[in-house]
Nucleic acid binder design. Sequence first.
DNA 1: ACTTCCATGAAGGCATCCTAAACTTGCACT
DNA 2: AGTGCAAGTTTAGGATGCCTTCATGGAAGT
Lengths: 299, 299
Amino acid sequence: MEVRHLELLRDLKERGTLGAVAAATYRTPSALSQQLRTAERELGVALVEPASRGLRLTWAGEILASGADDVLAAIARVQAAVDAGRGQPAGTVRIGTLPSAGAALLPAVLERLAGGRITIELEDFDLAEADYAGRTLDHDLVIAHSLAADVPLGAEGLVSRVIAREPIDVAVATGHPLAARTALEPADVAGERWIAVPRGFPFATILESVEAATGATLDRVIEIRDNRLVESLVSRGVGVALLPRFSTPRGDYRLVPLRGVRAVRSIVAIGRADRVERQAVRAVLDLLADVGAGLNAGG
Amino acid sequence: MEVRHLELLRDLKERGTLGAVAAATYRTPSALSQQLRTAERELGVALVEPASRGLRLTWAGEILASGADDVLAAIARVQAAVDAGRGQPAGTVRIGTLPSAGAALLPAVLERLAGGRITIELEDFDLAEADYAGRTLDHDLVIAHSLAADVPLGAEGLVSRVIAREPIDVAVATGHPLAARTALEPADVAGERWIAVPRGFPFATILESVEAATGATLDRVIEIRDNRLVESLVSRGVGVALLPRFSTPRGDYRLVPLRGVRAVRSIVAIGRADRVERQAVRAVLDLLADVGAGLNAGG
DNA sequence: ACTTCCATGAAGGCATCCTAAACTTGCACT
DNA sequence: AGTGCAAGTTTAGGATGCCTTCATGGAAGT
């Protein structure tokens, strides 16, 4: 029963194919195939079985895969204890983030990290809510968001921490009649022309709530994802749109709070238990939470 | 941070010297010395330091040593889950036991194990109470006893389970005036000639309790350890002695209960957490507890 | 039928873990 | 002080085992 094998099974379960695991761990599929054989020989049980083009875990494989988390977390705790005894946390923390939240949070984080021995490796990606969880395989921390709850879809088994709750406002061009309002109800905006996001993407559920609350079908003049593009279209008066309050820069538009429907997203940092045990990762997570609390308090 | 290194540090802490660990794991001290270096290089911390003739763990070494238990237990749980999924527990269970309790318990255990796929490897040793804990390094289960409590001295960090509580009776030769009594008080036996055990060995504390209760100093005509020898001396009328009720065979003497002082020992099975996770070990432990309960109930 | 994707198998390179033997250090005993 | 012993370390060399390369065989999709 070797940790290497537990890790392999876990990765295989998560990534699906030997090739994917091989790429992620900088080895060849052949190596992993041989490791699987070795593990099966040592345990005397089949761990995988062929399934269509790839592999499927057997019941024993599932047991190892799920047990791996406990074992790796225990090892990580020991490592963390050693790091703690040695003084300041150090090392590289790999962060993956959705762009808008990253823009709002990371400058302050990097600033406060300056001078320390922690370095940050950053990647950003714009995904559907449920896809952020998978990125924790490649990053120590992933800054995701959740529209309906405080844990993003698919992140149930992971460590998660709410960094901030960010209101989603209605962006209207400066000259627009609604721009002077201090708050809007669904009925106020049901007749507007909307710059929307595709179904399944962030904020789409809020638009659907507006439709549910008013009974109307919104006039979606265009569906795009990139917030920068949305901002410029709103500025030109093409329509109104939903934009997150903290991570939208000033421009020729105003952000007006939307009341009467749940119009808020949770910015959540998620990560694998074993990764989060690392002192450096934990320190960054604490910092994120602190900066996030500042957003909620200060605006 | 490799499990092999954690295990090495744990063993080193327990056994004290590299040589002892090497002997126990069928390797040479040289191999272990090299492993220690490798671990120190990988962690960037000193794990051991020379101390008089041997080694002492540094703070970092202590952290690894104590963290090892968690990690190994987590691994053992995974193994146990696989075993459980595979059906009947199997394998070899190594038991160490104090002779008297072994004689009382193990025949029934072996009988009920017959036909199964568990084999027992048995060793017996007669030790002071505090020395049994150390034997869990070499055996999966150790049957020890505790005179004052339900956990033997030194077994605090181990898994322990009380198998039986065995009264310690006064053995008197058949023709002796006290042989007809159904119970004895300290005052009844304070004036007898005693076949005693050396100080620090089993039952010595009971004799001291008798002295404390009566104020007398017992007449210790001889001090020996082996119960078989004690039995034969009692039979010849050399004196009276303390003997455990369940594990003393019939002979030319009677066992008379002693009242007024705590005259009972707990038969306790102890073992390391990671070892006890094994299905087969757990099965044997359950069996021991069951047989032990039968002793207490039936006599 | 062809291509693509995925897993597997054999052969060989290379790291690493271990043993053996000689050396060093510290303690105890005379 | 000298000897002996116990424990750890060092070096060299051998065996094991992990991984890569290259080649093979199925299973889907086009």
